[in-house]
Simulated scan of single mutants.
Amino acid sequence: MEEQKITKIPFGKLGIIVHESCRDLGKKVDDYIVKRRKEEFAKNCSEYHVEELKDSYIIDSEIIRFANGEAKGHLKETIRGKDIFVLADIGNYSVTYNMFGRENGMSPDDHFQDVKRLISAIAGKARRIHLIMPLLYESRQDKRNSRESLDCAIALQELENMGVENIFTFDAHETRVQNAIPQTGFESLHSTYQIIKAINKVEDKICFDKEQLMVISPDTGAMDRAIFYASILGLDVGLFYKRRDYKKIVDGKNPIIQHEYMGADVEGKDILIVDDMIASGGSIFDIAAELKSKNARNVYVAVTFTFFTNGIEKMNEFYQKGYIKKLFSTNLTYIPDKFKQAEWFQEVDMSKMVSLLIDTVNYDDSVSPLLDATNKIKKILDK
């Protein structure tokens, strides 16, 4: 990742509000910003820059929860005139709260309400408000197929009405949802560069050669992502098509009958399956088993978000059987320790990129270099 050079005055003094759901990532992001600014500001001795040197840019804040489950956001220091970045992980199911003496796990709905509470506590005193929500709230309900709610669009409009000027997310399920807020900044960033960098560093046996490696899309929705990976790496691409039973609805969706493969022969090749997320993992397991039955050599999986909503027992089984060799996933949403400790899991750290994003926006520079990682990936391949 190319470093952002700090050469001018920022739009406003930086303040980062980190929700409890994002404490670990927020701390890493803050550390990167502090280090970078101290190194860069040492070359610039203007009075403003010296004043802006801090040991932390995190605003002291909290969510106060009442015994009946209601809550309020509280900022413990001034944010007047500051350029505020709110950082939250709506997918962190490890956060709990007490209600009527019972311990409840925080759902995405609970986290989103907390985000709005923190924005409400700003009360118009900040110079600008930006929201970094790596896992976009209700991103899986981004379009209407029948008489359904359109939750993601409504949530974005709520944030716009509260004064949020820019919303940043990663690998949005459907980027066209930004049409709901045409006057508000919306950017969906990607983790492609960091994932390829991690693969290249960790799996030295992988050869980025089309005769030895192939990219697979698990469904039609992930095809654009697979094509990008294949194009930038100079590889062939294949596709699995999901045949569904449209006569039934199970857990809110039509069950998959079979995965049909379309593409070149995979025999003797390493396979890289790419997608935005793993929910239950069912599709990945079916596809990995099908690829091994076609005599694929090693199967790797690269995603931005990993949930395994039904647990990781089957993933452990598939690893032991040799069906899946390694899973690469970012730390943009909560990762339990049992995932991190598994031999098949490789965490891809995105904190440096998020810190560069904050610095870039705070100094009113273009985020285009962060959106397009083509040149950086080519440098990895050249080496």
Rank of each mutant, 00 (worst) to 15 (best):
Y319W: 05
K253D: 03
L189E: 02
I287F: 03
M162K: 01
D276P: 07
F11T: 10
I154P: 04
F308Q: 01
E347A: 00
N166P: 02
D209C: 06
Q178M: 13
A264R: 09
R36G: 11
A155C: 05
D204V: 11
A230Y: 00
D224I: 15
W344H: 01
K8G: 10
I232C: 06
S94C: 03
A180G: 07
I17Y: 04
R128I: 13
Y32M: 13
T374Q: 02
T169E: 02
E267K: 03
K76W: 08
R117F: 05
I312V: 15
E52R: 04
D151H: 13
E187P: 08
S61L: 02
K205P: 09
D265T: 08
Q157C: 12
E103W: 02
E158N: 11
V50R: 06
S94K: 00
T169R: 05
G221E: 11
A226F: 02
K43C: 14
K383C: 05
K125L: 06
T360N: 03
S217T: 09
E52S: 06
N98W: 07
N92R: 03
Y300I: 13
R147K: 13
E347S: 01
F305C: 05
E174I: 12
E3I: 12
K326R: 07
V164I: 11
I257H: 01
Y57N: 10
F41D: 12
I257N: 03
I16T: 09
A230K: 00
S21T: 02
D382H: 10
I271F: 09
N298F: 14
G26N: 04
V354A: 02
K201Y: 15
H111D: 08
D151Y: 09
T184F: 12
M162G: 01
G238R: 06
I119F: 01
A198T: 15
P108M: 06
D30K: 04
P134Y: 00
P134W: 00
I167V: 14
F208L: 07
I312K: 00
S146W: 13
L189G: 05
D30M: 08
P369A: 12
K210L: 12
D276H: 11
T192I: 10
K338T: 13
T220E: 15
V95D: 04
S139E: 07
A230Q: 05
M262F: 10
K378R: 10
D337K: 02
F345P: 00
V95E: 02
G252V: 08
A155Q: 04
K325T: 12
I273H: 02
N295F: 13
G185I: 08
P108T: 03
I380C: 04
I257Y: 04
A289K: 07
E70H: 10
K378P: 07
D276A: 11
E103S: 11
K72H: 09
L75E: 06
G81A: 11
D89T: 01
E313D: 14
G221A: 14
A302H: 07
V301A: 10
T374E: 10
R297N: 14
K340Y: 07
